[in-house]
Design a binder for these strands. Structure first.
Lengths: 220, 220, 220, 220
DNA sequence: TATGAATGAGAATTCATTCAT
DNA sequence: TATGAATGAATTCTCATTCAT
């Protein structure tokens, strides 16, 4: 956890530190990221950084948790206005669109979460698990449960397997499947938002298709 | 590529080095793995290791490629005797069973491939891509194409999206979904082979279910 | 370039580091010099040295450039009061005396510049070229040009060949001709300042003799 | 000294080892030269090399001494037919031409002797001193003594200073003054044999000019 | 509260030399 | 006589963390 000193800091300085750290963790990964670099870019001293966060891992966890929380908020906001009751499947697709858009609008968050997903260091990984997947489980799980409850998904849906599959795929869809050698298949590397969105929809279809009871809406 | 010296080494020593290196890369990941540790565990001197492999990256790539090749061979052997024509979906499930079993029988390979999948270092990642994903694309792609060709899968199957989704999920299924925070859902951590197999089948069903034209066989 | 940290260091510590480094580079040459040894002798930790200089080459260049600059300043100071107009050849000799004296007073500089002149490493050599020879070319070239301009040297003097010859000989004269097997001839090894000065004058005579238009002054 | 084993070796193998070693010492210098590389290029094993020469220094000394001896022989052969009695200064120039030509014809020797002259390692340097400068002293000293004896050089020539100056300049003239920052002055880097020869003559003139009693011959 | 110099363990890699076969 | 695997000390350089100012 950040120290009280960190909380008392002016927002501008906190922002500078966060930006520098997200960039560095995003580009180099947790282990290879250098606190030297972060301090230099943020314009603070080494000593200061250790007065804000007890150690490197703690800084990382803080950033991941914040990003995850931001995303969840964005998703919940986007979800509010969707016609879940009347067009469930369309709403799922629109939510996925919003999610993909979020990462196009917040490239530093995207990059850092890619790194987090690639992380092997046990304590960093534990942080990702606790900070990110809890949110995922709640949001995705809730979405599927709603679908079943309102009859938009078949009653015999294998809820847990489906939620798990979606969560496993999520990082690949928005964060960059190309890092995993799938690019020849899906052509996502360097693609624009429109193409990424359309690929996202195809994957949703593969996962949800068999459970949908409504007629599947066409792409706009 | 390993040096000629490596090729001439007695199998026992090669095995000791491979074991130690797979273990270290598996536990700590490419970047954090220490050649010091590998040497100590393998009982060789630092100088020797560099007479076997030109550098760290080369050792890593060698191990990954070897493991990947072993797995593909095991899969192709397992595939040969399956009744693809008469029970396509059952064969898919049995192939998945074999695949999961392989990793239960070769825990060091499993662990190292998990690490490889988590790798952030770009050049190490490129090695993984080339060594592992090419095999995956061929084996999985071939399996789906066969299903479509013989009418076991629907003609309008989104072949690429499906192959991509399977490949994205593969590492999670056999290599450890628990590392990604999904354990509360699937209960795989420390589970036995039987439970892992059953989870694998549920995920296959989620992915393939809608495209299957045959009646789905029950678990044995 | 040295880091800001280096600039802020107390002079005593900077001096200790410079001494140790000049000694080590002088005794062993750039390539063979050990940063370990330098740190030990300077009484600082390995980490500290790399907070002062980005790498080994930078430390080397810094020392060479500093020494060269010191020498040039000393030469220009010595040159100021000489009677160039009325006794050009005598002034050349007195300048040479000052130059030889400088190295007797700064034995570490002498030794390090000998090493620098023996350097085989291309990038270290480039540094020497840029730091040292530019000064030499300017000072020696200027001196010859002046001699020609005021009529102290013959008009048909092969200016470039003469400057080149002097510059080629300079390191040998003051920095130690004995290292090149010439000692049986000149008896410089371990000699005192007086003998070295007299040898210097003989070499000047060999080089300049034919071009001098004034009567050559006797040694004092 | 090479071992008896080395002497018994077939000439072809000895030649391969010499070539490889001259190349490596020439390109990288004594300290940085790698016996690994030499063995690989020569096509022999590490063990063999150490059965031919007791250690690295000994191999280096052997090569230097051999090259120096070759050069001396070539100079003495070239000297034989020169008209020393009737055209001393012209003969000096022609000898210098032959010397420069030798290095254009034996680039590996040239390069290795450049390295030797740049060497800082004490034992390697001692070898250079003993092997090379003894020859230089005898050949150049004899040449000057002859000039004085036959009256081609003035009686009051400062024989030792002159010999020393010539020997100091020799490596620069044929071996590459460009490495010492003099190229802007003399334009020798990458120059052809003709230009190098003409530069050599200008330097001879600068050194010998004042002592010559004959009229100086023009360049052909 | 901020600073930034100091630390030293640890990283990958190279190399001349030895010696059992 | 030839081989080439083994060695381990030495190299430059990085980094998170501490602590006196």
């Amino acid at each position: 956890m950040p120290t009280p000193t960190w909380e008392r800091l002016p927002e501008a300085k906190r922002d500078a530190v966060r930006r520098a750290a997200e960039e560095e963790f995003g580009v180099r990964g947790y282990n290879a990221a250098s606190l030297n670099t972060i301090c230099r870019e943020a314009g603070i001293s080494k000593g200061s950084l250790f007065q804000y966060f007890p150690d490197k891992a703690d800084l990382f966890v803080h950033l991941i948790a914040r990003a995850s929380h931001d995303i969840r908020s964005a998703m919940e906001a986007a979800s509010t206005d969707l016609p879940w009751m009347t067009d469930y499947f369309g709403s799922v697709n629109l939510l996925m669109d919003a999610w993909i858009s979020y990462f196009y609008d917040h490239p530093r968050h995207r990059q850092m979460l890619v790194s987090a997903n690639l992380e092997h260091n046990p304590s960093a990984l534990a942080a990702v698990r606790e900070a990110v997947y809890v949110d995922y489980l709640e949001v995705i799980g809730g979405m599927i449960d709603l679908g079943i409850a309102i009859g938009a998904l078949r009653e015999d849906t294998d809820r847990d397997a489906l939620v798990a599959a979606i969560i496993m795929l999520l990082p690949h869809i928005a964060l960059g499947p190309h890092v995993r050698g799938l690019d020849p298949l899906l052509g996502l590397a360097g693609s624009d938002r429109t193409h990424a969105t359309s690929v996202g929809r195809r994957l949703i279809q593969v996962l949800l298709g068999q459970y949908v009871t409504q007629s599947v809406p066409k792409e706009p």
